[in-house]
């Protein structure tokens, strides 16, 4: 197979965006970037805008196994990771894999799970393996968690602490589709059923090859590194913020930018790539100062982008 891994992925994105998930190109792209750079995605939006559909379609189109957890306050860690069950016939405990043993895990309404469950999931996300009763089980590769949370509803939720938010590579919303698009969707009804029929557009190997290309073949120049540093240090100095972007945040920015450049059919990262990803990658990592609890972090980052000169020469 001589075809560049990128071609298949771009075709997949196109197909998804045009045929199944109209008006969600941005979210699809971000999800793909997240997958390519080996991170996890947090979708923040009200219910009913197609979060689950997105995750499902993605897994189908990419030929990935899909697991789903609906988080509630009584969800136990073992409901996610899996548990050992005694097999009478074999006379021994058999490990039943939980939904986490899928390439794609959709954790719906993650802020409704109790902190213990949340942290178990986040640990799995970070370590990419689960240790249950002394045995360590590696999670499949690729492994990506798409968590959703409803930003509006606050009753009976356990908001994710900042330290755990930092583990999500990208946070994004989906937003309402454009008017014409929504009318079409209203007319044709839910597409949940047709999604089941999506045939994989990318092979598992192609996906892994694409991830390798992103990691090794995309050039991140010194100038762009300088630019990332400029932006990051600007958040750290900002008087309205208690804490700016961590080094992990900066690394995430660089890695997602590589994936972005990959999708844009370039083998080098542009400052524009950084700009495009600065908000989704960094907004959720900021901790506003005590007097600025209501601060709109995205707006702040946008103003930083407008103040920071792009290094061109």
């Amino acid at each position: 197979m001589t075809e560049h891994p990128r071609t298949a992925i771009l075709t997949a994105i196109d197909t998804l965006a045009n045929d199944y998930l109209q008006g969600k190109v941005k979210a699809i792209k971000l999800a793909m970037i997240c997958l390519l750079s080996g991170g996890h995605l947090l979708l923040e939006d009200i219910p009913g805008l197609g979060k689950t559909t997105l995750a499902l379609a993605l897994s189908k189109a990419l030929g990935l196994s899909f697991g789903r957890v609906q988080c509630t306050s009584d969800l136990l860690p073992s409901d996610i990771t899996g548990l050992s069950i005694f097999d009478r016939n074999a006379n021994q405990f058999e490990f039943m894999e939980g939904p986490v043993f899928n390439n794609l895990l959709l954790a719906d309404e993650i802020n409704r799970a109790m902190p213990k469950t949340q942290s178990a999931l986040l640990e799995a996300m970070e370590e990419r393996r689960v240790t249950i009763e002394g045995t360590t089980h590696n999670l499949p590769d690729p492994f990506m968690v798409i968590a959703t949370q409803n930003p509006v509803e606050q009753v009976g939720t356990y908001p994710l602490p900042e330290s755990q938010l930092d583990r999500f590579m990208i946070t994004t919303g989906i937003g309402y589709p454009p008017e014409t698009m929504e009318k079409i969707i209203i007319q044709s009804g839910s597409i949940r059923d047709s999604i089941r029929d999506i045939t994989p557009l990318i092979s598992h190997d192609q996906l892994l090859a694409a991830r390798r290309v992103v990691r090794t073949d995309i050039h991140l120049s010194e100038k762009v590194t300088d630019y990332i540093y400029l932006l990051v240090s600007a958040t750290r100095r900002h008087p309205m913020l208690l804490a700016g972007i961590s080094t992990r945040g900066a690394i995430s920015l660089a890695e997602t930018a590589r994936a972005y450049a990959f999708l844009a059919e370039r083998d080098y990262v542009l400052p524009e790539d950084i700009k495009a990803l600065f908000l989704p990658v960094c907004a959720h990592r900021l901790i506003p100062g005590a007097d600025h609890e209501t601060l709109d972090c995205k707006e702040l980052l946008r103003s930083l982008l407008d103040e920071t000169p792009v290094p061109l020469a």
């Binding site: 542009l270 982008l305 920071t308 000169p309 792009v310 061109l312």
Partner: peptide, 21 residues
């Protein structure tokens, strides 16, 4: 780059914009 900025005019090419932009 300086020449480009001059060609485009100072208002049209602020420093925070990349070339693609």
């Amino acid at each position: 780059i300086a020449q480009l900025r001059r060609r485009l005019g100072p208002d049209a090419a602020p420093e925070h914009l990349g070339l693609n932009e």
